[in-house]
Design a protein around this nucleic acid. Structure first.
Lengths: 190, 190
DNA sequence: TCATAGAGGTGACAGCGTCATCTGAAACGC
DNA sequence: GCGTTTCAGATGACGCTGTCACCTCTATGA
């Protein structure tokens, strides 16, 4: 029934899920290898059977989150009932939603766990490719890179402010309003 | 000559400088209370005479960086030889420059050291106020908040991508080009 | 059937943030 | 001028962390 490979894969998944839960519940400082092991029903040394070190585990957590986002973006792109601008708005809204519901995970996705400078970048590569296709449909192939980077960077920064609670009180606006403004500006600039 | 208050202030400054140096040299993980004390010519317990804990020291480091930026923004705003759009471009470029020359400090400025959710926000308050005045001169008082948040968030996100080295190879653009695009879009949207 | 590989448990170590306690010198009341 | 207070800094200690070496046990494969 439970072959060794199966149980190893299940353990790996349990560890990633435990780390994600701890991240959501108590932020990055709550994610200790000991706590992750305990929450996954193991002891402190067990995670090292599946990940080289803590950073490796965190990269796996971020990769899983990027994979989930990629599926959403892919679905949006395939939805023929939406206009290019609506698809773009959908992607940026999905980003905001992650930021709001899982702020610590969101920060991890856009962070750079010391060491490999672009491990998390690679994790988000497929999402970025999907996103680029949506942007290209709106502004054309030639400007897709420039506007894509502008939109992703802007959305990331805006969501970051939203996550830190800076938007509402201080600037009197919301992340959605800013994204709408941004999409409208890009669509008009063509 | 060196009264007690003076030497205490000097020690405090030395500790902040030491922490900033360590941050620049080896990232956040290199900033340990022990190393900060040692670099400032003291022992590990000494920093606790000037800061309640490590987070307090980091907030002081971030506050100092925001204060420096505020002076730059203030000077830009006062420079009557610049157009509103040029002033805006100058501020965003200053942000990019910090991100490039002191990436870890930059991340700290926009991070949220666990605990007080807006300690760093308060640190940047005066910079933000100065910035808001510049934006208001460009898009009018009514839309200043919305466009100000959009611009700050976008610049922060774009610089973050630049810091992580994502811009050049992957999207084939630069932070300056994106900021120029952004400023042009905002100026045109009026 | 038996050797092996690999998941998981356990003891140990150095480094960390932090605190209680001690020391010495500057500041202050008289 | 002298005793007292205050406070910067030094030091020992504690619990927690990431990580490793080593041990145990069981599914796997010849």
């Amino acid at each position: 029934m439970t072959s060794r490979a199966e149980s190893a894969a299940a353990s790996r998944r349990a560890l990633i899920d435990a780390a994600t839960d701890l991240l959501d519940l108590g932020g990055l400082e709550a994610v200790t290898m000991r706590a992750v092991g305990a929450r996954a029903g193991m002891t402190r040394g067990a995670p090292y059977r599946h990940f080289p070190d803590k950073e490796g585990l965190l990269i796996a957590v971020g990769t899983q989150a990027w994979d989930r986002l990629e599926k959403q973006v892919r679905a949006l792109r395939a939805d023929s009932s939406l206009s290019p601008a609506e698809k773009l708005r959908g992607v940026l809204t999905a980003l905001i939603t992650i930021g709001r519901s899982q702020p610590h995970l969101y920060q991890l996705m856009f962070s750079n766990p010391t060491g490999d400078p672009d491990a998390m970048v690679r994790a988000g590569q497929r999402s970025h490719d999907e996103f680029l296709a949506i942007v290209a449909a709106l502004v054309g192939e030639h400007d897709a890179g420039r506007y894509g980077a502008l939109l992703i960077g802007s959305a990331a920064g805006i969501t970051g402010m939203e996550v830190d609670g800076q938007l509402g009180d201080k600037w009197g606006t919301s992340a959605e309003e800013l994204v709408d403004t941004l999409v409208a500006m890009v669509a008009n600039s063509r």
